[in-house]
Each structure stands twice: as C-alpha cells, then as structure tokens.
Amino acid sequence: MNDVMIEVAHLSHTYTTAPVKKKALDDVSMQIPRGECVAVIGFNGSGKSTLVQHFNGLLRPTPGSVRVDGVDVGGAQVNLRALRQKVGMLFQFPESQLFASTIYQDVAFGPQRMGLGRHELRARVKHALDIVGLPLQDYGQRSPFELSGGQRRRVALAGILAMTPRVLILDEPSVGLDGEGRAEFYAYLQRVRQEQGVTTILVSHDMAEVAAIADGLYVLHHGKLVMQGTPASVFAQSEQLRRWDLAAPPLHELLAALRQRGIALPEDVMSVEDAFHFLQQTQKQKQKQLPDVSSRS
C-alpha cells in the first residue's frame, strides 16, 4: 500500500473571476503521508484555503496535478461525490452552516446522501456524536441553535465524521472560540485521530496551537511553499518565520533564546508540559548536587 495520501505536483491557481487577477498559488509541490496530522501555515491571503480546496475537488487543479489516495482529482472521470465523501472538509465558522431543525437531522444530512440504510445511518450518527462528546440520546432531538458556539462547531465536525472520511481538512478550526472551547475542540480532535486513524490537515495562521498536535508543518507565503518539516525544525528558524509575517510560539522563542545562551536543552522539548518536566528534572539534579557543595565548604 502506498503510504502517500495526498500528492501535489506543480500546482498553481489564479482567481479569474475577480476584476483584478491574482495568483493565489504558485508552483506548489508537496506530499502528505497517510495517517499523519499536518498543518498548513501562512499569513492571511497566503493561499492556504485555496490549496486545501483542491484536495476535495472544490477547485480544479489547473495547471498542476493533485492525487488523493492515488486518484487524480483533475481527471475527467473523477467522481466528485465519492471524493468529497473520502475527503471531509470543515470550513471556517462551520457553525453557520447548520440548517436542520434537530441535531440528528443535521448530522445525518451527509451520510443520507450516500444512500445508507436506516440502521447504518443511525449507527453512524450515534458514533459521530459520541466521538465529539454530544451523546445522541441527550442531544439528538435538540435544535442546533440552542447550543453554545463550541458545541455547534462540534456538531458540524460530527456531520463530517458521519461520512467516515479518510482525510479530514480543518480550515481555521479554532477561530472565534474561547480558550476552553478551543482546548475541548482539540481534545476531541485528538480522539478522532486515535480512533479512526484519519489523515488530518489543519489550516491555521497561529503556530502555537498546531505545535502540540501536528507531525509536520508546511509554510506558505504569497502562494509559494517556502518551508516544510517537523515543528521543531521549522520553529528553530524563527528569524525567517518573522520575515513571512509569522511568529514561532512564545515557548519556542524562549527555548531558542536559552539555547543561544548556552543552556543545553534536548531537541524533543515541544510543549509546556515537556519543558516543565525537563526543568523539574534539572532542579532535582541541582538539589542533589547542592548538599555536596555545602558539605565541602
């Protein structure tokens, strides 16, 4: 089995409908491995959303090519409905796309169009709602409009998950959520990844929030892919990131500054918890050493 899920080759895109033409993507090539969680990062207008809209056929790749799971998206015979079912996509502010009168109907909309039987449909909706923490028996018959913003966003996520996609694209999933809603959303997202093993693509302009969960980063600037690699290697080049109007997370800036001052920090320190753990250990070592020092003097 091929272990590349999405393969992009020399993709460019120009928006022709606007009176003033603008090149949104410029010769982008990338490969996204199966089952990984990657993040596409860039400043506003850098072409992130344009790029991911090619992955489920909302935009046609001209010129260039996009292959999803071995299928050429730009081919003449491509089945767009099957592709969109395989590649689930959650847009910005997904809570504004809810429309049905009950949560059950809203989540069932996508899988219903796939022509499933009634029992299969119900099982899928139940499973999807369970994953996002809104159990069917409590929430199924309520209106989506009486929920909070974070909960409605999770309903929208369930609507995508119920179609059992192999790839999940999330466009700025945490914009407009408060800290708690954001943490909750990412916790549920992690659960989805662990249980279903979907390839996940996050689109964001905020590096701090993707640092914790992404395996790989792709940095876009003015439609060009300017950097790719693991979060650690990308964050290490904070000088260059600043040139592309991006900033490495504060923690990584701090770590970089500490390394420059000659403090030996291991490369795998990635999150606040890791750093805390590391500092605790060094402190314990120092406390062990301290009594020796005092006895000598």
Partner: peptide, 21 residues
Amino acid sequence: EQLQKAQAARGADLLHGTWRE
C-alpha cells in the same frame, strides 16, 4: 460562494441526485 462550497463538502449537490435530494 463560501456557503455553497461548505454545503458541497457536506454532500449537498444541486446538479445530481433525485429531485427530492
């Protein structure tokens, strides 16, 4: 346009399917 794309990604399709769909 945004909404159209979002609903298309959820399987809403104005050009295919039965009239009810």
